[in-house]
Simulated assay, not measured.
Amino acid sequence: MQTAILKINGMSCSGCAGTVSRVLKNIEGVQSAAVNLDAGNAQVEFDPALTGPDAFKTAIEDAGYDVV
Rank of each mutant, 00 (worst) to 15 (best):
V68R: 15
Y65V: 02
Q2H: 12
S21R: 14
V67Y: 04
K57C: 00
L24I: 02
M1D: 12
G10R: 03
N36Y: 10
G10F: 10
C16W: 04
G15S: 08
I5Q: 12
I8F: 01
D54Y: 06
V20Q: 08
G64D: 04
N36G: 11
D47M: 06
K7F: 09
V35T: 12
A34Y: 13
S14C: 09
N26C: 07
A49G: 15
E45S: 07
L24G: 01
E28M: 02
Q31T: 10
V35C: 03
V20W: 02
A42F: 05
D38V: 13
V35L: 00
A55T: 12
D54L: 10
T3V: 12
Q31N: 15
S21L: 04
D54M: 12
A4T: 06
P53L: 02
V44P: 05
A17E: 10
E61N: 14
V23H: 10
G15P: 01
D66T: 13
E28C: 00
E45Q: 13
G40H: 06
M11S: 03
Q31S: 14
V20M: 02
P53A: 04
D62W: 03
E61V: 06
M11R: 06
P53C: 03
L24S: 01
K57W: 04
I8W: 02
I27M: 08
L6G: 09
D66C: 03
S14I: 12
V44H: 07
A4V: 11
V68H: 14
A4Q: 10
S12R: 08
V67P: 08
A59S: 02
Q2G: 09
A59D: 05
D66N: 10
I27Y: 02
R22M: 06
Q2K: 15
S32V: 00
Y65W: 03
A63F: 09
D38Q: 15
N41Y: 00
I27H: 07
G10Q: 06
K7V: 10
Y65F: 12
P53F: 03
K7A: 11
S32H: 01
C13H: 04
Q43T: 13
T3C: 11
D38I: 14
V68G: 15
Q43R: 12
A42D: 10
S12P: 10
G40T: 07
A42V: 08
T51S: 08
A33Y: 04
E45K: 13
A34Q: 14
K25M: 09
V44W: 05
I8P: 06
C16E: 08
Q31M: 12
D38C: 11
L37P: 02
D47V: 04
K25I: 01
